[in-house]
Amino acid sequence: MVEDYDREDVENDVDAEEPSEARTEERRGEARRGGGRPAADQRRKRRLCPFCVENVKTIDYKNTMLLRQFISRSGRIVARRKAGTCAKHQRMVARAIKRARHIALLPFTASHTHSAR
């Protein structure tokens, strides 16, 4: 069960690193095929930070329903590039998650779940 979570996570991580791999390959290869910036209409539209849209000033560490959306199934904090939050709100989310973990409202890892017993 736990392995399932991890596999999912690894997959995602590999996905995330793909651009950098592609870049090095491109640099090594003689011909730069299809390089350059995609046209404006092809670029993925940058999502607005979900907290900025709501004009959020503070994030409560007790709001586990909200914070759970920002932890992966293995319990890790979701990266900013995946969560789509701005730097400011990501810091607030991260701090809130860490506080929630301290008082056992959120797990540190998936292996913390009670299935272990």
């Binding site: 007790k62 973990r101 008082i103 056992a104 409202l105 959120l106 797990p107 540190f108 913390h112 779940t113 009670h114």
Partner: peptide, 17 residues
């Protein structure tokens, strides 16, 4: 409430704010 992970072998605790 149920703790997200055991603390001192306890699985639950009384939360006071």
């Amino acid at each position: 409430r149920k703790l997200a992970y055991p603390i001192r072998r306890y699985e639950e605790g009384h939360y006071v704010l």
